[in-house]
């Protein structure tokens, strides 16, 4: 009997060990980035399209201060409160000592250079689609931004969500590369798809999540409860958002809705970023949104 128990324990250890091995934090393959030359101006566009400042600038930062990525904004979710870390170019408290490969590991695999899982509050489940050239350019732009020595705060997450090892399982279930909307898209719609599905990470808020915090892809961009509290984040499917493409592009530029109210809530933050994109990119986003599946099928 005792022998049987030992065998069971050994089996369990092997299974857990295998599980941890399969779900271990992955780093990026340096070969994918080799030979790519950073374009800092392009990196700045990636920075705005990906909305880095919306989370990583200091709480309430305005104007130029949004380029100081000292962290500290708090995001309350059903899993706990996440505090955005310092990703300024400070080598000790930020990411100043990161290589482009380190950044790729964070963006594509949600792993830190020292092989820790990041929480998916950092939207790597979207950034996993970021083009290698954009990663290299973004890295160069981030390194050109000011250093700030504010230490990163700890996330306020309770059991069991404080077990970072379990995030490997989350990734196994929900971290997927590849496009969400497939099929016949024009060149403009494909550009919009890249901006929405990869950089803009729109689905992180506009798509509902299951109990484990994975996006319900069959309801892509169809609206979701607001994790921060009251109200509902609106759906963007063509039958839910009856704005014209020009309306959408104008909203992403100036924040004006079709009745000339201004963007509210988190979208006001988003518009600060999309305002810095080109007209062509904003129209690309709009044309993609008209191509996503309807909410009723």
């Amino acid at each position: 009997m005792r022998k049987w128990g030992v065998t069971a324990a050994a089996c369990a250890a092997v299974i857990v060990g295998a599980g941890l091995f399969v779900t271990r934090p992955r780093l990026a393959d340096p070969a994918v980035l080799s030979g790519l030359v950073p374009d800092i101006a392009q990196g700045e566009q990636v920075f705005h399209a990906a909305g880095c400042a919306a989370c990583h600038s200091a709480p309430g930062a305005e104007g130029e201060a949004r380029l100081v990525l000292s962290g500290g904004r708090r995001f309350s979710t059903p899993f706990g409160t996440f505090v955005a870390p310092n990703i300024s170019s400070d080598p000790a408290h930020g990411i100043g000592d990161w290589t482009p490969v380190d950044l790729a590991g964070a963006l594509w695999h949600g792993s830190s250079p020292d092989r820790q899982h990041y929480y998916p509050a950092f939207p790597y489940a979207s950034y996993v689609r970021m083009a290698p050239q954009d990663v290299v350019s973004l890295h160069a732009f981030l390194m050109s931004l000011p250093a700030d020595a504010t230490p990163s705060a700890t996330h306020e997450v309770g059991f069991p969500f404080n077990l970072r090892l379990a995030l490997g399982g989350w990734k196994l279930l929900f971290l997927r590369s590849g496009w969400i909307v497939d099929g016949d898209l024009s060149g403009q719609q494909q550009r919009g798809r890249y901006l929405v599905e990869a950089l803009g990470h729109c689905g992180e808020c506009h798509t509902p999540r299951n109990a484990l915090g994975g996006l319900i892809l069959s309801k892509w961009l169809q609206g979701a409860p607001n994790p921060g509290g009251k109200g509902r984040i609106p759906g963007l499917a063509p039958d839910q958002l009856d704005w014209s493409e020009a309306d959408i592009a104008e909203y992403l530029k100036s924040g004006f809705t079709p009745d000339y109210d201004s963007a509210g809530g988190e979208m006001a933050e988003v518009v600060l970023n999309t305002a810095k994109l080109s007209d062509a990119d904003r129209l690309a986003i709009a044309s993609y949104l008209k191509a996503i599946p309807q909410s009723r099928d």
Binding site: E62, K230, G231, F256, S262, A263, G264, A268
Partner: peptide
């Protein structure tokens, strides 16, 4: 000129207006 105009509206609304119910 639309962008900066919208930005000015939004800056105040973001800080001082409650979200729509």
């Amino acid at each position: 000129a639309m962008g900066p105009l919208g930005g000015a509206c939004s800056a105040c609304h973001k800080a001082y207006r409650a979200p729509k119910e």
